[in-house]
Design a binder for these strands. Structure first.
Length: 486
RNA sequence: GCCGGGGUGGCUGAGAGGCGUAGGCGGCGGGCUGCAGACCCGCAUCACAGGGGUUCGAAUCCCCUCCCCGGCUCCA
């Protein structure tokens, strides 16, 4: 029953034991809101959404913090992303931020990603950052050069423990911004000096400027979760330098180790086998995917692969996920129908008891999968088996009420924990009036069927299908659902 | 150059020494049905890149080879 979590730091699965009994603090690096959110964001945030849901399902109180980066995130050329874009579009930087932040939340809401408990913004924590930077200078971990402040990597011997990047290799390999004032090319900026007419700057002990990217997460994580936190997550590409630098800042500042007990990283998303990159022009916006596919299909697509694996986006896979969602939703419709039509108080038959036993078993292996480093991919396979068992049960001519209710609890519970819809879709687009009307039409059609007037019956079915209402004749009963709203 | 992750049946994609030939899709056959759909059951020369090795036993561990993808630079 213990949860196991793969830690990027130790590179093995560890038994999950939060620092405070029964309470989990989790920080996930949020987006820099200067552009539309893409499928990679969806991947990461849906994965962590499922993780948070699972921890709660297992009885933990979870406090989830995910930042909004609205300053300090620089491009390769050393330009602040938000500022650069705002200047090009001739808008106030914070208006740009506001726009994309709202769109981000909208996308996440549609995808059923529950909002974090706190969504702190970097610009709202400049004072905290300045305080931490001051302290780092006092402790000798940072130094000022002409209005810039750098972290002195040589003072932090653990540097590289997360990414396993060796300092020598860094110097040899990558392009590093060699600011003239840096003592060592590996040192990174905590505070950057801003020119006179720079639109986004704050006053500090070192003059006007703005914070570096890495310091915001360290500061906000500590502010809301304490000096040591249980889980810190993000996508794989943040390990170096972002998370490496966060560790250096936090542990240097507090003198306490470790800053983070479990580092969790999601695998990256590729598109048709290639990495997703602006330069390749293959960015897939969440918005565009949702134009074609249901949110549930997107979630199922993402959760069908383990969160640490690389995930390749291809449209056919979404088509398949959509079909799978339909399978699950069909089953829910049948369950609803069985509840009102065929629930009985007769003692359970041996067949019913067999199915119930099977459901209990599947429920428990589902849970084991999730406990094992949140293996949603394996859990999904059991979800489909639960679905099949439910179908078998509701196919029976009469079903023991208690068993039916147990089946419903199990099935819906698993759907919910994965953030999938647990009610048949027709509820969302119909109304009492629509339902009553369709029931009348169905009655008329069934009268025709009794008369063996199949031409009329088929015509009614065809015309209903053409407006998105799908009929299904079951023994003694016709059920319907809305496939695509007109 | 330095670090990772992979190569599994027609496709997709879990599993990481025996404990379910995962699951889904597609295909075929059967059941149910007026038909259709949905659903249920069964089947597929029962697959794990190639070559060695360890083991009573390997898709899973070790070694070698080939191929793919990613990180090291802004990125979720």
């Amino acid at each position: 029953m213990a949860i196991k979590v793969y830690s990027s730091l130790s590179r093995v699965k560890e038994v999950f034991e939060p620092i405070h009994d029964g309470w989990v603090g989790i920080y996930v690096c949020g987006p820099t809101v200067y552009d539309w959110t893409h499928l990679g964001h969806a991947r990461t945030y849906i994965a962590f959404d499922a993780i948070v849901r699972w921890l709660e399902y297992r009885g933990y109180r979870v406090f989830y913090v995910q930042n909004i980066t609205d300053v300090g995130h620089l491009t390769e050329a050393g330009e602040d992303k938000v500022v650069g874009r705002a200047i090009r579009e001739k808008v106030e930087p914070m208006a740009l931020v506001e726009f994309y932040m709202r769109e981000y939340f909208r996308d996440m809401d549609v995808l059923g990603v529950r909002r974090p408990d706190v969504s702190p913004r970097a610009t709202g924590h400049i004072i905290d950052m300045i305080e931490v930077i001051k302290r780092l200078i006092e402790k000798g971990y940072a130094y000022e050069v002409d209005g810039n402040v750098f972290f002195d990597v040589s003072r932090f011997p653990d540097y590289g423990k997360l990414s396993r990047v060796k300092l020598e290799d860094m110097i040899a390999g990558a392009r590093i911004d060699v600011h003239p004032g840096k003592r060592d090319p590996r040192d990174f900026a905590l505070w950057k000096k801003a020119g006179e007419d720079y639109p986004l700057k704050w006053v500090s002990p070192w003059g006007y400027g703005f914070p570096g990217w890495h310091i915001e997460c360290t500061v906000m994580a500590m502010r809301y979760l304490g000096e040591q936190i249980d889980i810190h997550g993000g996508a794989l590409d943040l390990i170096f330098p972002h998370h490496e630098n966060e560790i250096a800042q936090a542990e240097a500042f507090t003198g306490r180790k470790p800053f983070v007990k479990y580092w969790m990283h999601t695998g990256l998303l590729t598109v048709n086998g290639e990495k997703m990159a602006k330069s390749l022009g293959n960015y897939v916006r969440i918005r565009d995917v949702l134009d074609k596919f249901s949110p549930a299909a997107v979630r199922l697509f993402i959760l069908s692969t383990h969160y640490r694996s690389q995930l390749d986006y291809r449209e056919e896979k979404l088509v398949e996920a959509e079909a799978n969602v339909k399978r699950l939703m069909n089953s829910l419709t049948r369950l609803e129908e069985a509840k009102v039509e065929r629930a009985s108080d007769k003692p359970a038959s041996s067949e019913e008891r067999r199915i119930l036993e099977e459901l209990y078993r599947l429920s428990s292996v589902f849970d084991e999968s999730m406990d094992d480093d949140f293996n949603t991919a394996e859990a999904v396979s059991f979800l489909f088996e639960i679905c099949r068992a439910v179908n078998k049960l509701v196919d029976l001519p009469s079903i023991n009420r208690a068993i039916l209710s147990e089946a419903e609890t199990i099935f819906k519970g698993k759907l919910r924990v994965l953030g999938l819809p647990d009610t048949p879709s027709r509820r969302e687009v119909s109304s009492k009036l629509v339902e009553a009307l369709i029931d009348i039409i169905i009655d008329v059609r069934n009268e025709a069927r009794k008369r063996k007037d199949y031409a009329t019956a088929d015509e009614i079915r065809r015309r209903l299908a053409s407006i998105g209402v799908k009929l299904e004749d079951l023994p003694g009963k016709t059920i319907w659902r809305i496939e695509e709203a007109i």
